[in-house]
Design a binder for these strands. Sequence first.
DNA 1: ATGGATGCAAAAGTTTTGCAAAGAA
DNA 2: TTCTTTGCAAAACTTTTGCATCCAT
Lengths: 135, 135
Amino acid sequence: MSHEEKDYIQILRSQGYRVTPQRLIVLDAVCDIGGHAAIATVVARVKKLDPTIDLSTIYRALDVLGEVGLVVATEIGDEGKVYKIAGEATHHHLICQNCGTVLSISHDEVNPLFAHLQEKYGSFFLTSRSQSLRL
Amino acid sequence: MSHEEKDYIQILRSQGYRVTPQRLIVLDAVCDIGGHAAIATVVARVKKLDPTIDLSTIYRALDVLGEVGLVVATEIGDEGKVYKIAGEATHHHLICQNCGTVLSISHDEVNPLFAHLQEKYGSFFLTSRSQSLRL
DNA sequence: ATGGATGCAAAAGTTTTGCAAAGAA
DNA sequence: TTCTTTGCAAAACTTTTGCATCCAT
C-alpha cells in the first residue's frame, strides 16, 4: 500500500468522517489494484478482503473517499466510472477499442494539444485537476 | 432533416431490416436534435413526435440504426451513451466540467497528437471510425 | 401470407435509500 | 454517551427480453 497510514486517517477525520475498517478496506482495495478500477473490480477485491462488506457500503465508501480526495473517480468510455488512488501524476488513458486494454500515458504526451486548445477555447478547457481530456 | 429519404430506406432494406414508422421517427428525432443526444433527449423528442412509441422500441431502433450505420453511438464522459447522425466529419468534443456544455472541434485540432500517439503506441491507437479519443 | 417489428409486461442489472442496530470518538 | 456508519432490504433507475399481436413486404 502506497498511502501513508497517518495521512488518510488525518484526512478522513479532519473532514468530519470516521475511520472505519470498511473504508480502509475499500481504500486498500483501490490502492492494491494499482491502476484505475471499475466498480466491479473494486467490489471483487473488497469482497476478497472481507466478504461481509455490503455493496452499498462500498459505494458509500468510494463516495466518501472521493469527497476527501483520497480517491479519484473518472468516467472513461465504456467502462463507466473507474476509481484510482489520488495523488498520481496527471496522466491519460489510451484504450484499445478491440480488447479494451488501457494504457496510461504521461501528460507530457498530450500537453502540446492541451496548450493549443486552452489558448484557443479558454474557458472550455479544464486546467486544474484534469483527470481525463474528453474529446 | 438532412438525411435523404431514399438513402436510409435503401440502407435499412439492404441490410435486411424493415422500414417502420417508429424507426423513422427515432431517426428524425436524432437528426432534429442536431448534435449528440443522450438517450433521455432522444426519448423526449420521440415521445413528442409520437407518445405511443415504447421505450424498448426506441432502444431497439437506435441499435438497428447504429447497426446499419445511420446513427453513431459514442460514450462520452458523464453523459453515458450519446447518439448522433452518422456521416459527419470526424470531430471531437470539448466538455466544460462546470456546466457540461459540449463544444465540437475539428479533427484538425487534434490530428498532431493523434499522429504522435499513433507513431508511438501503434496498435493501441484507433485510426478508423474513431468517434472519440479517450484519454 | 409470413417473418420481422411493436407494445406490453416482466426481468435483469446497477446504484441509491430508509432504518434499526452496531460501532467510532 | 452520542452521532456516524453499517448491513439488510427495498426502492429507484436504466436497459434488456419474452411473447402475442400487428404490420411491412
